[in-house]
Amino acid sequence: MKKIFIIIISSLFAVSSFSQDNLTALQYSMGFGAGNMHDFIGAASFRGFTIDYRNLVQPNIGVGVDIGWNVFYDEIPDGTYEYQNLTISGKQWRYSNEFPMLAAMDFYLKPDETINPFVGLGLGTMYSLQNTDMSAYTYEKDAWHFALRPEIGVILDVAPGMGFMVTSKYYYGFKAGDLPAQGYFTINVGFVFIP
């Protein structure tokens, strides 16, 4: 999985290195679990950020990388953890750290205008690290998922070389390692730098 990701990223940089235009965005990220992740942690995540880099191979096409970190956390007042004939109950502190690392491609709908909406798709890997803490014990599961990520967003060009960016992404990591499929939405706001 990691080798595939490295090859994809290297290929994108090789293609995009002919372009002189690029953009880099750093955004605060809020996450909302879906499916299995929501079952594990129902609370929204307000701890996260994402970094996006795109080389503009065409005025309306950007390719690059999407890297992020979202921390999901919830407290279960009286949770139960079961394994075969063993049952452990008590207050649980649940953590889920998600680290998406994706190759990404965006299509900009109005690249020459102040408000530039876009759609994008990401492909790569997502590392999930889940902990269930009870008393002095922790039960840990992790996985490197093959991941997909559709995205919609808008760039607001407010000053030469700089703008605001608002995006919504859906990360979906397929079943892998100790974990079933993991998915979550994010809403992201931040700055975009365009040299």
């Binding site: 956390y73 063993l86 049952t87 008590g90 207050k91 502190w93 009870m134 008393s135 014990y137």
Partner: peptide, 16 residues
């Protein structure tokens, strides 16, 4: 986020 704030929160029941 961090863990427990109160002693009672560290109570755990294990059965097998």
């Amino acid at each position: 986020p961090q863990g427990p704030d109160y002693i009672e929160e560290m109570d755990v029941v294990i059965t097998n």
